[in-house]
Design a binder for these strands. Structure first.
Length: 498
RNA sequence: GGCGUGUUGGUCAAGCGGUUAAGACUCCGCCCUUUCACGGCGGCAUCACGGGUUCGAGUCCCGUACACGUCACCA
């Protein structure tokens, strides 16, 4: 006989009606973009309702554990500001928060469920084949391979005998006849015939629960109000609802999210080389930009505004805006968000972020990295754009003289030559070398020469940088280069022009 | 194969029986300009298909196609 006081004792101390969501990854790999989005939505739902966001680790598959995966999860959540209120590291009122630490709890509830008639012990060992290498193909060819349920019909004395003989067993869910309906906040009401459902294993022979069991027990005991997860669980949700019914519990609200795709037919995946959160960071994307973009992938705020801080997202987020169809991850749009976030940074913040990238190609300590950061600030989409944009500071590239030919600024080799001569003369006479003085010097010179600014500026910039496209104009570049180096490069240009 | 779900421009998407079918990204053109970028203006381009229901359908119903998910002692 089961001790029912045990269950009352460990029933959740969380007040009903409180919004609580959870992010429940299994530590099997890296944090892909879809995962991050699920975590974000769960966080937003909780915080919008002034509720709790918990972290639970689903590690019941001992074979798939990956070293270091937990650290990636903690670090990503922390970096993104998706701070949890309860979790393995923080503890909390409904712990433990790691499933393998909850093993005794599942065993108790499994026994209860057997007693309640919602599950049965299965002694079949034949039904433990090696994992099918290609279950999809098998099902397509042979149809579904359902367990025949023979152990569900075992007489009591036979069960007792097997138990007494220590026969290993699993616990399977008993699926009743009829139909099961559940409601999802994104997909609406879904009904299935119970005969399409299998008597799934709830407790494995190693005594650990499967996801199918653990998620129900944990979500209930932890007082989870909204279960936010990927839409791959849509098909098994009826089974979970049946479990809630057997226990006499109220099921949570479901929020199933469609996947983030790499193209029309494939999910984002590590195998295809799609970037994880960490990869994106390495590629020079800002956390806030990634978060903002990911929030909008498969969710629409309704209005025309697209840029939101995390705080604004909490305010504006609504489950109603989550879309049912999958969304394709668009790197171009991420770049757009990233450049907007970079431009919105303070000059100091940008300099701090950009410095290591600048130093990849600008090693000459004479150059003012703050000034270089300033000319880059409004001009890069990712931090990784930086090194090659400023590589000309350390070494003047070998450039071709037709670079001097430019229609818009009305320059060609001949005009450029005279412009450089004039600029060199003016610069030689310039003692005080600052951005302002260089600017005044050049502007005055253009006026004296009676040419448009571009006609003078263009050749000076080409000679100074040796590149057609540069961050900043002639003035900024010359100012950073300093007088001697500017003059050296301008004279070199003059030489080239014959 | 069974079951489930989805389908508005190239991409993200708004739309909730009557709209010139929003907006953003991309791309193109123009303006601004010291190259580029930023910014401003403009442009290309969409309701998967077929039947209904209705005075009227992207919007509701049915079917078809296609796609995805699921059918593990994985989650």
């Amino acid at each position: 006989m089961l001790d029912h006081t045990y269950f009352t004792a460990i029933e959740s101390p969380i007040p009903t009606g409180k919004t609580r969501t959870r992010f429940a990854p299994s530590p099997t790999g890296y944090m892909h973009v879809g995962n991050l989005r699920t975590a974000l939505y769960a966080y937003l739902i909780a915080k919008k309702a002034k509720g709790d966001f918990l972290l639970r680790i689903e590690d019941t598959d001992q074979a798939r554990l990956v070293e270091g995966a937990m650290e990636v999860i903690y670090k990503t959540l922390a970096d993104c500001g998706l701070t949890h209120d309860e979790g393995p590291d923080l503890g909390g009122p409904v712990g433990p928060y790691i499933q393998t630490d909850r093993k005794p709890i599942y065993a108790q509830y499994a026994d209860l469920l057997v007693e309640l008639g919602g599950a049965y012990r299965c002694f079949c060992d034949k039904s433990n084949p090696e994992p099918d290498p290609d279950p999809d193909a098998t099902c397509a060819a042979t149809g579904p391979v359902k367990y025949d349920g023979r152990c569900s019909r075992l007489p009591a004395d036979e069960i007792a005998a097997k138990l007494a003989a220590n026969t290993p067993y699993v616990i399977r869910q008993r699926i009743p006849e009829g139909q099961t309906t559940f409601s999802d906040l994104v997909f609406g009401q879904i009904t299935v015939d119970n005969d399409t459902l299998d008597d799934n294993v709830l407790i494995k022979s190693d005594g650990l629960p499967t996801y199918n069991f653990a998620n129900v027990i944990d979500d209930h005991l932890m007082g989870i109000s909204h279960v936010v997860r990927g839409s791959e669980y849509l098909s098994s949700t009826p089974k979970y609802n049946l479990l809630y019914q057997s226990f006499g519990w109220t099921p949570p609200l479901y929020v199933h999210c469609s996947p983030v795709m790499r193209d029309a037919t494939h999910k984002m995946s590590k195998r295809h080389g799609d970037p994880s959160y960490e990869d994106l960071i390495d590629q020079g994307y800002l956390t806030d930009a990634i978060l903002n973009y990911v929030a909008l992938l498969g969710w629409s705020p309704g209005g025309e505004e697209e840029i939101f801080t995390r705080e604004q997202l909490i305010e504006v987020f609504d489950v109603k805006g989550i879309s049912k169809s999958p969304a394709i991850f668009d790197m171009d749009k991420l770049r757009h968000f990233n450049s907007a976030y970079i431009r919105a940074l303070s000059p100091e913040a940008f300099h701090a972020l950009a410095l290591p990238y600048i130093q990849q190609t600008v090693k000459n300590p004479a150059y003012d990295t703050k000034a270089i950061a300033d000319i880059l600030h409004q001009r890069c989409e990712t931090l990784c754009d930086i090194p090659k944009k400023v590589d000309f500071f350390d070494t003047l590239p070998a450039y071709d003289i037709d670079l001097y030919e430019n229609k818009k600024s009305k320059t060609d080799a001949t005009i450029s030559k005279s412009m450089l001569e004039a600029a060199i003369a003016a610069f030689e006479a310039l003692d005080h070398w600052t951005s302002e003085s260089v600017h005044t010097c050049l502007m005055t010179l253009a006026e004296t020469l009676e040419v448009k600014n571009a006609t003078l500026m263009y050749p000076v910039r080409i000679a100074a940088a040796g590149k057609a496209v540069t961050p900043g104009g002639a003035v900024e570049i010359c100012a950073i280069l300093g007088k001697p180096e500017t003059l050296r490069r301008l004279r070199l240009g003059l030489e080239k022009l014959g």
